[in-house]
Computed example of a mutant assay.
Amino acid sequence: MPTETRLPRGTHPTGPIMAERRFELTNRPGEYALVQIRKPIKDSGTGNYKCSVEWVRPEERELFELWGIDSMQALQLALRAAGELTKTYEGSLRWAGDKDGYLGFPKTYPEHLPKALLRKLEKMIEREISAHTRKLEAAYKRRQRR
């Protein structure tokens, strides 16, 4: 079963950094925060994998360890955790110059949801994306006719 643990201060992350996202602090020009995700490491005792996520801000560092059945699940959970960590600060972070507050982490859904519900959610999302795309295409065609 996957787990997440906030590690005590002074604990060192495991594995090499495999991904990093840097955020500009909107209320503190010239200062940055970042999220680092480290390569999943197999635990010799359990056979499961752990993946470290470090959230670094000018005043604090937080380290989390996420566990999965395999390295893919540990990595997926780490990405989800990174998105949740940044969500708390989204009003004061900017990524890649975006002005709307998008931080680059898509919404994910809990793994324990029934397959039928996940399919229903996926169909709803696809329907909304299609409707939005049709509106954009219609607006584009109207502009082209002018």
Rank of each mutant, 00 (worst) to 15 (best):
G83L: 02
L113V: 05
Y89K: 06
L85M: 10
F105I: 02
S92N: 14
Y102P: 00
G91I: 00
E84L: 12
D100I: 03
G101V: 04
K107L: 13
L79K: 12
L85V: 01
T108I: 02
G104H: 07
A82D: 01
Y102S: 12
K87Y: 15
D98A: 12
Y102T: 03
K99P: 04
E84A: 08
Y89V: 03
K107M: 11
K99T: 15
Y89H: 14
P106L: 07
S92L: 09
D98T: 05
F105E: 03
G91L: 11
H112I: 09
A78G: 06
E111N: 08
T108E: 12
K87P: 01
L93A: 06
G97Y: 08
E90H: 12
A81H: 12
G97A: 03
T86A: 14
L79C: 12
G91W: 07
L79N: 15
P110T: 08
G104Q: 06
G91M: 09
Y102A: 11
P110Q: 09
D98K: 12
T88P: 00
S92T: 13
K107H: 08
T88D: 13
A82E: 02
T108M: 06
L113H: 05
K99Q: 14
A82T: 01
A96G: 08
G101F: 02
T108H: 08
P106A: 09
F105Y: 15
A96E: 15
Y89D: 15
L113Y: 13
F105S: 00
L79D: 09
G97E: 03
R80D: 15
G97Q: 02
G104Y: 07
T86F: 05
T88E: 15
P110N: 09
T86E: 04
Y102N: 14
